[in-house]
């Protein structure tokens, strides 16, 4: 039987930016948004630029603060509302449950790529040798040349940095994955590797939410869509 456990669910979610230092301008992004991701799902967020796709992903990660609504995530068998928990709990949820691939790697100066990738495992208490082995395996799969592993990613090309970023979130088998344009700066070969990795994550029962501008990638990985539109200017 198919496993339809809900892993992540947003209900009545609303996000508005208020720019206090620019005359208090209010920028509504989305309102009354509902979505649910079950084990094995990959939901693609679809809509034009400015529709709030990245903002939604960031809300789901606890990085942006929604004005209304709830975001329940299944964390250690219980549903926890990210929009209402103590920040320390979000740190814990990110350590064990939700992985996030942002559009750009925020590289920590001077830390070698392999350690950047191993970090999520170390944070969970995995021993250093096993964490490095696992990191090496993902870096190899994503075709990062071995000679780069012990260098800090700050000097890498855009595509290499993005692959380090992807490796970091796929090394730890997160139950929920949030992907903001994971294949944007990748060549076709590496794009296909990432497609395979997303499909494998789905197959092991992860719930995925992603922004995939590349139609081929979206076709290959998505099992459903959430359509988003640009909020109209207030009259």
């Amino acid at each position: 039987m198919e496993d339809r456990t809900i892993l992540l669910q947003a209900t009545g979610l609303a996000k508005t930016f208020t720019l206090h230092n620019q005359g208090g301008i209010r920028l509504p992004v989305f309102d009354a948004l509902d979505m649910a991701v079950c084990a094995g799902d990959c939901l693609a967020l679809v809509g034009p630029s400015g529709a709030g796709k990245s903002s939604l992903i960031r809300c789901l990660y606890g990085n942006y603060l929604p004005q209304r609504g709830s975001i329940h995530v299944r964390h250690r068998e219980a549903l926890v509302d990210i929009a209402a928990v103590h920040p320390q709990m979000i740190v814990e949820i990110r350590r064990h449950t939700i992985g996030f691939v942002s559009q750009f790697l925020r590289a920590i100066p001077r830390v070698p790529a392999i350690d950047v990738v191993a970090e999520p495992l170390l944070a969970r208490g995995v021993d250093a040798a096993s964490a490095r082995d696992a990191a090496a395996a993902v870096l190899a799969r994503l075709n990062i040349p071995r000679r780069l592993w012990n260098l800090a990613p700050a000097t890498f090309s855009g595509g290499e940095q993005q692959r380090v970023n992807i490796a970091r979130s796929f090394v730890a088998d997160f139950p929920v994955l949030l992907l903001d344009e994971p294949t944007a700066s990748l060549d076709p070969d590496n794009r296909n590797v990432v497609i395979d990795m997303i499909v494998e994550a789905r197959d092991r029962g992860a719930g995925v939410v992603g922004i995939f501008h590349d139609v081929e990638v979206r076709r290959a990985v998505a099992t459903g869509e959430v359509r988003m539109n640009v909020e109209r200017d207030a009259a």
Binding site: L19, G62, L65, P87, I90
Partner: peptide, 21 residues
Amino acid sequence: QGLTDQVLDDPQHPYTQLLVS
């Protein structure tokens, strides 16, 4: 006050918005 990346990436208070910008 809040989660560090949330306060820096989506600051709510006018003063924090000024600091970050």
